[in-house]
Simulated scan of single mutants.
Amino acid sequence: MDKLTITEVKSILQQPKIKADILKHLAEDERQGVQRLLVSYQRRIEKQQKMQATFNERQVFEQAYWKKGQFVAGIDEVGRGPLAGPVVAAAVVLDDNFDLIEVHDSKQLSLKKREALVPKIKSQALDYAFGVVTSEQIDEINIYQAARVAMSEAYKGLQYNVNGLLIDAMDLDIELEQTSLIKGDDRSISIGAASILAKDYRDNLMAEYDLKYPGYDFKNNAGYGTAKHLAGLEKLGITPIHRKTFSPVKNYLN
């Protein structure tokens, strides 16, 4: 061990598991380079342990079902606030083999991280499904009811028979045990997974609409009222995917 170079020490400390006697030996190494690497290693381990602890906390609601040999679906929706496009919900069923500790509220994740997590979530999930409510339907029944419909449709799309639902701050007209959680996407791993899948699905839809209706920057604003979007409304008027009951869209109806 005394003959290890700094580069070799760095390689060792990047391994997922390191024996205690090796760490003890490195701790006794007086070279500043080794000590700096050990500090960096310890910080990384502490961060991972903290993430694992919070991940375990986000499994509490699911564990209540898993311990009984039951399944529960987490449901979340995205797209209540935009001026254009649908509201999209996702329902996700997980089991206790799910180990993606970075999964939580999609709004707290970067685009790069969300895109990396989506295929992993789909691979590990037992089941997932989506519900989509169009802008026309939103105008007919209001955005709150549209979100509920989208969530119900996502649940109905599941192939798994679940024993309960974990829902982000909502209740549905479904005869099944439900737990409504305020900020559920950051308190439940299955709701968090649903929020990530729903956002990814909707963002891809809006990117397609950006090609169909250029001039509003839908690809980058997802239908929210950004400066470029409002400029597009002023110059081009409304499109078929705009929500006509939303301000300021309704100002352009004539």
Rank of each mutant, 00 (worst) to 15 (best):
I189N: 08
G131S: 02
L181Y: 10
E115S: 07
M151D: 01
M170N: 07
A90F: 07
M170Y: 05
Y128E: 02
P82F: 05
I18C: 06
A84P: 08
Y209M: 07
E102K: 15
L38P: 07
Y201Q: 08
E8P: 06
R58V: 08
V149I: 15
D217S: 15
K228N: 12
A231T: 13
W66Y: 05
Q108Y: 00
Q42E: 14
I45D: 00
E102A: 15
L211T: 12
G215W: 02
E8Y: 02
E175Q: 14
T5N: 05
G223I: 08
A129N: 06
K19V: 10
Q63A: 04
E177V: 13
V132D: 01
D200H: 13
Q63S: 12
A227V: 14
R202M: 03
G184L: 06
E77Y: 04
L197E: 06
A198M: 04
P119S: 12
L230Y: 04
E30G: 07
K120E: 15
A64M: 12
I143C: 10
H229W: 08
L166C: 03
Q15C: 08
V249N: 04
Y160I: 13
N251F: 07
S135T: 03
A150C: 01
S110C: 04
G131H: 10
K50P: 01
D168H: 02
P248M: 00
Q35Y: 05
Y155A: 03
K50L: 15
L166H: 01
K107D: 12
A207K: 15
D217F: 00
A207F: 09
G33P: 11
A64R: 12
G74N: 08
T239M: 03
Q49F: 08
K228H: 12
D21E: 15
L253C: 01
K67F: 01
I191D: 04
Q35A: 01
Q159M: 12
D2M: 11
E62A: 09
K235L: 13
D185V: 03
A27F: 11
A64D: 10
G215V: 01
P240L: 08
F55H: 14
L236G: 02
E153C: 10
L83D: 01
K50S: 14
S188L: 05
N220P: 06
S106L: 03
E208P: 05
Q63E: 14
I238T: 14
D2S: 13
R243H: 03
V133D: 09
E46W: 00
D29W: 08
E77H: 09
E136P: 01
D168Y: 00
A207P: 03
W66V: 13
P214N: 11
L233N: 02
R43I: 10
A90L: 04
A198K: 04
E62H: 06
W66S: 00
I6K: 08
V162E: 04
F246S: 02
Y216A: 04
L4F: 12
D173W: 08
